[in-house]
Design a protein around this nucleic acid. Structure first.
Lengths: 88, 88
DNA sequence: TCGACGTATTGAAATCTATCTATAGGAGTG
DNA sequence: CACTCCTATAGATAGATTTCAATACGTCGA
C-alpha cells in the first residue's frame, strides 16, 4: 500500500540501502547496526524511522534493545508496483 | 550500469515518475511534456536532464524539437538490480 | 540575415534532507 | 530508588533539491 514515490525516496539514500542490505541477512538491534556504520546512533535511528514508516522494516522490542528486520513482502510488493508503473 | 541509490534518487520525485509514465506510452517532445504539467519549461528540462544522465530516457533531436523516450531496457535492468540488492 | 520557436543553462530563493550534539524515556541492575 | 544501558526525539546546521525568471543557444522560415 506504499506510494511509489515515497518508496523511492526511502531508498534514495546509501545508508538506508546499506541498512536494508544488512537486515537482508538477519534481524539486528540498533546498536549492532550503528556499529556497522561510521555514523551517530541518532542518525541511524532516524534512517530506521524512515524505513519503518514505510513498513520496509519491522521492529520488535526485547528488553532494552529494539530489533529491526527487513519486511521482505512489502519490499517485493513495492518493487513490483514500481516495475508495473514504469514498464507496463 | 547504474548505481541503485542514484536510480532511486532519480525516481524519488513525483514529477519524474509522471514523466516516465507519460513516456511509457510513447515518445514525446519537450513542449508536449511541459503541456502535461503545471510547471515551467526549464523545470521540466531539469527533470529530463536527471533522467537522461542515468539513461532512464533517451533523446533524439528532430529539427527544433527534442524527443524523449523511456529506455525500457535500462529501467528494467535497474529495477532488477534493486530487487536483487534488497531481496536476494 | 533576422526573427521566431523550441530547448537548455544560469542564478537565485525556498524547501527539504542528512547529520550532529544534547537530552529524554524506558528497562534492567545494584 | 539510583544508576547504567539502549533507543528515540528535539533542535540546530550544512548541504542538496526543486522551482522559477531570465537568458543563451540552435534551428528553421521569411
Amino acid at each position: 500500500m506504499v506510494n511509489c514515490v515515497e518508496f523511492c525516496k526511502a531508498l534514495a539514500d546509501d545508508t538506508r540501502q546499506q541498512i536494508l542490505g544488512l537486515l537482508k541477512e538477519s534481524e539486528m538491534c540498533v546498536s549492532d547496526i550503528v556499529a556497522a556504520f561510521d555514523m551517530s546512533q541518532p542518525t541511524i535511528s532516524h534512517h530506521l524511522g524512515i524505513l519503518k514508516r514505510l513498513d520496509l522494516v519491522t521492529s520488535r522490542k526485547e528488553g532494552k534493545q529494539v530489533f529491526y528486520a527487513i519486511n521482505h513482502d512489502n519490499v517485493v510488493e513495492c518493487c513490483g508496483k514500481l516495475i508495473a508503473k514504469l514498464d507496463a
